[in-house]
Nucleic acid binder design. Structure first.
Length: 757
DNA sequence: ACTGATTCTTTTTTT
DNA sequence: AAGAATCAGT
């Protein structure tokens, strides 16, 4: 017991050993909140004799859930089977599987990921002849998910104009389609589960009396519906222990509601909030930067992080010419870090949006530095995997129209749009699924009616095996049925194997020129199935499919080798690295331009920046570029406002050696030579505490011209800006400047007194 | 019905 | 830039 609690500071100890009551723990970044949460659970079990069976813990990601379980088992030599630990979605899924009948779902309901959901919506919209110019499927999807997050059904959507009326209709039609096919999207998992508990008092009482202790991680990211779900589960007796940090709320776009923290205080009669403010992660300068930045937000709960460690190094800022230049810089620095003894897995490379990873990956690949990308295109979202999963879904549930549509003609078996339209028409007529319609057709076409009636007990497949068709609808029916038969008694990995061989997917990708990688992934799917049955207590096909949808990102074909960690800032939440590169600190990118139009958008971006900064333990690089390829065209950006919100005294500006002139040169107006070197330039890195070799690099090259595209300038009247275009030469030379405040203007170089920065 | 080519669209963050 | 959707030719 004392071993369990040793090393905790006062506040942590207080939180861990709280009596049976609800509590709100305000825990800053790096203040040991996961430790508090896991120790609390271990403490409850060990010292308070609480049964694991009556504990429910909600985490934000599957990764966090796994880590929590691992940590608890490390602390306690007991069986933690009965404990419910998972994400909101995972736990709702678990509940719905257990009570599928009460929830009005088929036994093998299918979980739709966002892409699947979009496909269904497109299908539904087409089916009712909606104008997809006026109602883009994406927007409909957004509308439906928002409504669900608010706990509303299609019929309950508030209608105040034609548009919302239409949207409500689409939602209802989509709802109907999902019910027909036994499909459940992410938001539906929560809503169904919530409705189940509201409508079924017996179940609600059962669960609320079972779970005496409910613990919630990342509470600031819970949505309204999730909070309501928690309240139902808690009932009146449970002690609800929530841990959160309002400054790290970065999921408002998904319905996260920081207001839940205030509501919680009130609803659960919290008398005193426990604050964890001592940071054990980062050196002082990093913390100071984060603290100063986040102070620009309004309406925060009061909290200030501090550390007993020293200031450490200043934050290193690098102004790159292009995104390639930025990537090259990062590669170079990462190599130095590695040479200095920092493991690659201890280096985080963060960016605002997934699209930014590509240039970085390219540079890392060429430098043969091992790296691992998290997020982005996830394993279970790759097309070959999606195809394979669709076959598996057909095996599990033939009424899954979505799956059928995906594979009915892949690999090609001669079923074109005509046959498909006919099939869809038939299905509509019969009021059944596409599969049922196909089966009907097959029966009628392939076997005389009397015969099929006579042989009702014998599978018609068996009777027709001799002249098995190789093309067309019938071949598909035969294929799926034979797969089902063939998989009946097989363990999961062999089902996958069987399916891969017989579906023709393997042959298809083997024949493709670029198919090697996809083949590898398909093979990896067998491995995923193998490791799944080892971990899960129910290794059935249906649960595996649910796992694939819910944990799309968890499975990576890469192994555990030491590698640089690439990810978005969002996915970096909760992680820490010895050194962090935060790239793309440019206006429009970070803060993202889309955040401009959203209420509270900028503050959410700032919190995101706060999360990014606080990932670093010892060293932090901040970089931005003057020009960047985005969506196929070069864009010129000015540095992020967030850089200016960090005190200059904490920053050290780096200037690179110009190894080659990468800059675009402006014809005719490059007479002026660069003057004295920037006083802040010079050493690229300096000697550091963790043994990085000292290396001093001077400026060896000069920039070709002071005035070039991408150049940062200051104008006496318009302020700071960046050159985005130029024309003419000599005394006619003019440049177009995008000012941070004054907009974009053409200026004559002869008259406008521009100063370069 | 399939294929290859061309045009069009998309671009924040995630369970 | 990369994918999806559409189109023309086989």
């Amino acid at each position: 017991m004392s071993l369990l609690l040793s090393g905790l500071n006062n506040e942590q100890l207080k939180a861990v050993t709280l009596p049976h009551q609800s509590a709100l723990i305000l825990a800053g970044a790096g203040s040991g909140k996961t430790r508090v949460l896991t120790t609390r659970i271990a403490y409850l079990i060990q010292s308070r004799q609480v049964s694991p069976h009556s504990i429910l813990a909600v985490t934000f990601t599957n990764k966090a859930a796994k880590e929590m379980l691992a940590r608890i088992s490390a602390m306690l030599p007991i069986n933690i089977q009965g404990m419910w630990v998972g994400t909101f979605h995972g736990l709702c899924n678990r509940m719905l599987r257990a009570h599928y009948q009460d929830a009005g779902l088929p036994r093998v309901f299918q979980i739709l990921d966002s892409a699947d959901q979009l496909a269904v919506i497109k299908r539904v919209l087409k089916g009712i002849g909606a104008d997809d110019e006026k109602f883009p499927p994406r927007q409909v999807q957004w509308f439906i998910n928002n409504a669900k997050d608010e706990g509303l059904r299609g019929s309950q959507v508030e209608v105040y104009d034609d548009f919302t009326r239409k949207m409500g209709e689409f939602y209802s039609a989509y709802e109907q389609q999902c019910n027909k096919e036994g499909m459940v999207d992410f938001a539906e998992l929560l809503l169904r589960s919530y409705e189940l508990l509201t409508r079924n008092e017996i179940l609600q009482r059962h669960y609320s009396s079972r779970f005496n202790h409910i613990l919630v991680d990342e509470f600031q990211d819970t949505s309204q519906l999730q909070y309501k779900w928690l309240k139902l589960l808690a009932g009146v007796e449970a002690a609800v222990f929530v841990v959160g940090d309002d400054d790290q709320s970065i999921y408002a776009f998904r319905g996260a509601n920081t207001g839940n923290m205030k509501d919680f205080e009130h609803d659960f009669h919290i008398s005193k909030i426990i604050k964890l403010e001592q940071n054990y992660r980062s050196h002082g300068n990093i913390l100071d930067a984060a603290n100063t930045l986040i102070r620009n937000n309004s309406g925060r709960l009061d909290k200030n992080l501090w550390t007993s460690e020293g200031h450490g190094e200043p934050l290193r800022v690098y102004n790159a010419q292009t995104d390639f230049d930025e990537a090259a810089f990062i590669v170079k620095e990462a190599k130095f870090l590695q040479a200095g003894g920092v493991r690659l897995s201890q280096i985080g490379l963060l960016y605002r949006s997934n699209a930014q990873s590509r240039v970085l990956e390219h540079a890392l690949f060429n430098a043969s530095l091992a790296y691992r990308v998290y997020g982005g295109l996830r394993f279970f979202e790759r097309q070959e995997i999606k195809h394979a999963l669709a076959y598996l879904r057909m095996i599990a549930n033939q009424n899954d129209d979505n799956a059928l549509l995906r594979i009915i003609n892949f690999p090609a078996r001669g079923i074109g749009i005509r046959s498909l339209e006919q099939l869809q028409f038939d299905a509509k007529q019969q009021g059944g699924s596409l599969w049922q319609a196909a089966l009907e057709k097959y029966r009628v076409g392939a076997i005389p009616i009397q015969e099929s009636e006579d042989m009702a007990s014998v599978s018609h497949i068996e009777s027709r095996k001799a002249d098995k068709p190789k093309k067309g609808l019938n071949s598909f029916v035969v294929l799926i049925e034979s797969m089902q038969q063939g998989c009946l008694e097989l363990p999961l990995p062999e089902i996958v194997d069987h399916m891969l061989e017989h579906s023709g997917l393997v042959d298809y990708y083997r024949a493709q020129r670029e198919g090697a990688n996809r083949l590898e992934n398909l093979n990896e799917l067998i491995n995923a199935a193998t490791s799944y049955i080892q971990e899960a207590d129910d290794g059935s096909l249906a649960t595996f499919l649910a796992h694939a949808s819910l944990e799309a990102g968890e499975h990576q074909s890469g192994n555990n080798q030491d590698a640089l960690q690439l990810m978005t800032v969002h996915s970096a939440k909760g992680l820490e690295f010895h050194s962090v590169f935060l790239s793309g600190l440019e206006e429009g990118l970070f803060p993202h331009e889309n955040s401009r139009n959203e209420v509270g958008g900028l503050e959410e971006e700032r919190r995101l920046m706060y999360v990014a900064l606080t990932r670093a333990q010892r060293r932090l690089y901040l970089s931005f570029t003057q020009s960047r390829m985005l969506h196929g065209q070069t864009r010129y950006n000015i540095p992020s406002r967030f850089l200016e919100e960090i005190p200059d005294s904490l920053l050290e500006w780096l200037r690179p050696v110009q190894e080659e002139v990468i800059t675009q040169q402006v014809s005719g107006i490059m007479e002026q030579e660069l003057g004295a070197a920037d006083p802040r330039s010079g050493m690229l890195t300096r000697n550091s505490k963790f043994g990085i070799q000292d290396r001093t690099l001077g400026i060896t090259g000069m920039e070709a011209s002071q005035w070039r595209i991408g150049q940062n300038v200051v104008h006496a009247k318009f302020g700071t800006g960046i050159i985005v275009n130029c024309e003419g030469g000599g005394s006619d030379a003019r440049v177009q400047v995008k000012f941070s405040q004054a907009g974009t203007k053409w200026l004559s170089l002869e008259y406008a007194k521009l100063v370069s920065t």
